[in-house]
Design a protein around this nucleic acid. Structure first.
Lengths: 233, 233
DNA sequence: TGTGACGTAAACGTCGTACTTATTATTCCT
DNA sequence: AGGAATAATAAGTACGACGTTTACGTCACA
């Protein structure tokens, strides 16, 4: 489901990554390259390359004479978008969503403040456009359209902050928003208050008011956290 | 220099990663697996595994009939500790240090607030211990000892926040602090004000005062940013 | 002259096998 | 029982072959 067929490597990586991050292969489990090669009906070469990638994500550790052991959760590269995707698709999506939302609540207000200082005219324009898009799709079960605008909106803010680390968090935010829309039980239209806050944030950025931008973004974050508390205890 | 000789793979990966992230192979450059194999005097197998890892970090992209092309900076996994290490060791360490410090200034105050709520007695004890260690090593050119305590201190705060994403930022903070101490021109002892703030933060966490913890951490962050402005324009 | 189809070669992708090396477990000797 | 020699195991590395995709040049045709 996650991957089409763009290469054996991708398929095996995706399957193993998902199995590991979903806890199906708990930390300490041992995998053997030969077994994996047999199981996926691919050569050991492919398996080795996959293992090397998983190793670079600190999901596994490969030692001679012992095999490929799954490492404890604390060592995983949880900022790797791939890992995030796997974990959001797996077992404890709620816990994961909460962690990520808390992270957002720390980052995005600061990023919005910086954006209010550094945003270009073009960025302000697109931000407003996206906010209006959110308004337009906020009623009548247009969740997919709303999601698209929402993701774009937050991505612009993060980019406009001018900080590379913030900007690169755009993918993470996208995963979170998408995860919320798709997996969560979202039978209702988005919270009107949130929509309003996005419009006001676009204004604050356009007017170059860092304090307002930061404050408003904090409100958005609080709302998101509250939403999680309500929907997933 | 970065790596001893724990495997050909590691050596090649480290060399190539450094060359790419230092801009020596600018985005758009094309590498050929055969050439690399020849250059490092290893088999294509090793090169392929390295390329796969670099690909998973989004540093390169491998396409048939084209070769391995270096991707633009915006796509790199800048949260990967390995990438961070490479970039800090490379050309634009100043810019990198600034980005990371801004990131810290967003994360750590929130993390400290959470730590004040969630920290265990044991964590409080070790935090105080580390703060005292910083005091003890703050004078008389004991930079290495100070660094060790500093890193441990911030790691405890991030861990005590109870948020996995924050906790995993410990490595990043460690890299930043180490980079500052080692590469920056630090001919003087640490700022006494910073030392005091750490002691006060340990107190605030111990007393379970989230607001104070957040405020004090913000001051620490401001100090770190200011220090950067002074030392690297 | 411009445009399209077509063929070709260059590079990665995959495979199988053989060999090397590190590490663990076992055995054997004292 | 304890320690040293030894065997077994699984990953690490190498090499060579073939498959597959695809950029690019060629040629024919309008």
């Amino acid at each position: 489901m996650t991957t089409q067929s763009q290469g054996l490597h991708t398929h095996v990586l995706d399957t193993l990554g998902l199995e590991i991050s979903s806890g199906q292969c708990p930390p300490g489990s041992v995998l053997r390259t030969d077994e994996l090669a047999q199981r996926f009906d691919v050569s050991r070469t492919v398996i080795r390359e996959v293992v090397r990638v998983l190793e670079s994500m600190h999901l596994v550790e490969s030692r001679r004479r012992v095999g490929v052991t799954v490492r404890p959760t604390e060592t995983w590269n949880v900022y790797d978008p791939q890992v995030i995707r796997w974990r959001l698709a797996g077992a404890d999506r709620p816990r994961q969503l909460r962690s990520l939302t808390v992270l957002r609540s720390a980052i995005e207000p600061v990023a919005a403040g910086l954006a209010a200082r550094h945003a270009t005219a073009e960025q302000c324009a697109e931000l407003t456009e996206r906010a209006l898009g959110m308004v337009a799709t906020s009623r009548g079960q247009q969740l997919e359209g709303y999601l698209e605008h929402d993701i774009a909106f937050h991505r612009i803010v993060l980019n406009a902050s001018g900080n590379e680390m913030f900007a690169r968090l755009g993918d993470v935010v996208a995963e979170v928003l998408a995860g919320r829309t798709h997996h969560q039980v979202m039978f209702e239209d988005p919270d009107p208050a949130a929509v309003t806050l996005h419009v006001r944030l676009a204004e604050a950025v356009r007017e170059g008011d860092p304090d307002a931008a930061e404050r408003i973004t904090k409100e958005i974050a609080v709302g998101a956290l509250h939403e999680l508390d309500v929907l997933a205890p």
